[in-house]
C-alpha cells in the first residue's frame, strides 16, 4: 500500500519546481509514489520534456513515478486524480497565468478535498525546495479547515527540527493556548501570538514566517461564495499572492 502524491503540471516553467518539491515531500513521507499529471491543453510535449529532464537526474534509487496526460479536460482530471491521492502538489498562481491555469489550481484546492502543497514556481526558490520541511510554521485557527490540514501535515513533519504555531490574537478575546491537537500528540511546538489588527493577518503572518526562518507553512484555506463566484478569504488570498515558501493548504 503506497502513499500517492499527485503533481499537477500546467505551466512548463513551473514544472521543475513542482517535481523537486514533490520529490522532497515523498522523502518527508518516508516514501511515496508520484503521479505526475500534465493538465494543460497545449503544452503537453514541453511538459513531457521537462518531466524527462527531471527524471534523468542522478539518484541513488529510482523514484516510483507514473506519467499521465489530460489534454482534453484538465480540470476534471485534476479533481478525479486529486481526490484519489493522499496529497496534491500544485504551483502557486501567478498574475500572468492563463484562465485555464487559474481554473486548474482552484479545482485542485477547492474541489479535490485533499491537502495541496502550493509551491512557489519561480526558479530562485528551487534550492529551498530540495530541503523544506525542517522548520514548519502552522497558522492556527480553531476551526475545521485548520484541523483538516494539520492532521495530514503531521505525517510530513515528524522529523522537523522546529514546529511553530502562529495564532492570531484579537483584543478582548482570550489568549490562544497551545492547540490540544498538537499537545496531545506531544508535538514540541513553539507558540507565537500575532495581534490581529484592522488590516488582517496576511502580511504579519508572512513576516513572522520569515523572522522564524520557517521553510514550510501549513494553513487552512478559506473561500466563500460571492455572487455565484467562489472568492478566497483574506489571509488565503494574501498567502496565495506572495508566499515565497511552500504552503500546505486545505479547503
Amino acid at each position: 500500500m503506497a502513499e500517492v502524491i499527485l503533481v499537477v503540471l500546467q505551466r512548463t516553467a513551473a514544472a521543475p519546481a513542482l517535481l523537486t518539491a514533490a520529490e522532497r515531500l515523498a522523502e518527508l513521507a518516508g516514501g511515496a509514489h508520484l503521479s505526475v499529471l500534465a493538465a494543460a491543453a497545449e503544452s503537453i510535449p514541453q511538459l513531457r520534456a521537462a518531466f524527462a529532464r527531471w527524471q534523468a537526474r542522478p539518484r541513488p534509487e529510482p523514484l516510483p513515478v507514473r506519467w499521465h496526460e489530460a489534454p482534453g479536460e484538465p480540470e476534471a482530471a485534476i479533481v478525479a486524480r486529486g481526490s484519489r491521492a493522499d496529497l496534491i502538489v500544485a504551483a502557486r498562481p501567478r498574475d500572468d497565468d492563463s484562465p485555464a491555469v487559474q481554473v486548474g489550481f482552484r479545482a485542485a484546492l477547492l474541489q479535490s478535498d485533499r491537502p495541496v502543497l502550493v509551491v512557489p514556481p519561480e526558479d530562485v526558490f528551487r534550492d529551498a525546495l530540495r530541503t523544506f520541511g525542517r522548520r514548519v510554521a502552522i497558522a492556527w485557527r480553531e476551526d475545521v479547515h485548520t484541523t483538516r490540514v494539520v492532521l495530514p501535515a503531521l505525517r510530513y513533519v515528524a522529523a522537523a527540527e522546529a514546529v511553530f504555531v502562529l495564532a492570531g490574537m484579537r483584543p478582548g478575546r482570550p489568549i490562544p493556548a497551545m492547540p490540544a491537537l498538537l499537545a496531545e500528540r506531544r508535538v514540541a511546538a513553539e507558540m507565537h501570538l500575532l495581534p490581529i489588527g484592522p488590516g488582517g493577518l496576511g502580511e504579519d503572518l508572512i513576516d513572522k514566517v520569515h523572522e522564524l526562518h520557517a521553510d514550510l507553512l501549513v494553513m487552512g484555506a478559506f473561500a466563500h461564495t460571492r455572487l455565484h463566484d467562489l472568492v478566497y478569504g483574506g489571509v488565503t488570498r494574501h498567502v496565495l499572492a506572495c508566499a515565497d515558501l511552500p504552503v500546505l493548504m486545505r479547503f
Binding site: 503506497a2 509514489h33 503521479s35 484519489r84
Partner: peptide, 9 residues
Amino acid sequence: PDILAEHGI
C-alpha cells in the same frame, strides 16, 4: 476502482 491500483492494492 482506480484508487486501489494507484495505491498498489
